[in-house]
Simulated scan of single mutants.
Amino acid sequence: MTLKQPLKKGFKQMLAEANAFIETISVHDALPLVGEKSVLFLDVREAFELEKGEIQGALHAARGFLEFFADPESTMHKPEMARADRIILYCATGGRSALAAKMLVDMGYDLERVFNLAGGFEAWKAANGPIEII
């Protein structure tokens, strides 16, 4: 099956817009934030990806459920998200987390609180950042 007309906005344009809008934080700048109570590392990868490990202390919130976890009116709400002064989202390499970060801001989270981890979990592992095996 093919589309009858081109998409109004493809994933490349959506990624470019998200990356231009959301602040990216480098692994180097994020490493010292592990364990800070006011900082939440939010893993938006799928459950099967967790077998590779997770940033130490991260909260898993698969991207497909993120709107439900983010909204205080949802029965699935994760209160850690509302309490954090900074939320650093990550996925495997940074694309899905950029889109997820923009979505959080679109929902009403403060732009100054939401960050995308540059290079995602792969960059974190390459920098020997602390991980937990789930």
Rank of each mutant, 00 (worst) to 15 (best):
F11H: 05
M103P: 03
A82T: 10
A100N: 04
A58F: 04
M14E: 15
P32A: 06
A84Y: 10
A126G: 00
A18M: 10
A126P: 06
F41K: 04
G94N: 07
A92V: 05
K37I: 01
T93A: 14
K78H: 14
I134E: 02
H28K: 13
P6S: 13
L66H: 03
A30K: 02
G119V: 12
L42S: 03
A123I: 00
C91S: 12
S38Q: 12
R45K: 12
D71F: 05
K37N: 15
L33T: 06
Q5T: 14
T75V: 11
V27E: 08
I133N: 13
S97C: 11
F48I: 08
S38F: 00
A70K: 05
T2E: 07
C91D: 12
A62D: 15
A18Q: 10
A100P: 09
E54M: 15
L59D: 00
L3D: 11
I55M: 03
L111E: 13
P130S: 11
I88V: 12
E73A: 13
M81C: 07
A47T: 11
R96I: 13
F48L: 10
D43I: 02
V27Q: 09
I25A: 02
D85P: 02
L31S: 03
E73Y: 01
L89W: 02
Y90C: 02
I25P: 05
T93S: 14
I131A: 07
A98V: 04
H60C: 08
T24P: 09
G35W: 03
R63T: 03
H28F: 06
I131N: 00
V105S: 11
K12A: 14
R63W: 07
F11N: 10
G94Y: 02
K12E: 14
I131T: 14
A70V: 05
I22T: 07
M1L: 09
E132M: 12
L7M: 13
I134G: 09
R45A: 05
G95W: 08
F68I: 09
V27I: 15
A100L: 04
A61F: 04
F41E: 05
Q13K: 09
R86V: 07
A118D: 11
H77C: 13
G94I: 03
G129L: 11
N128M: 09
E122T: 14
L99M: 14
R45M: 06
F115R: 09
F69V: 00
P72G: 00
H77Q: 07
E49W: 05
H28T: 06
I87A: 00
E36A: 13
I133Q: 13
L117V: 02
A118M: 06
C91Y: 02
I55T: 03
V114H: 07
K37P: 13
F115H: 08
T75K: 13
T2S: 08
D106V: 08
I88R: 01
L111H: 15
I87T: 02
R86L: 08
M76F: 15
A20G: 15
A101L: 10
A118Y: 03
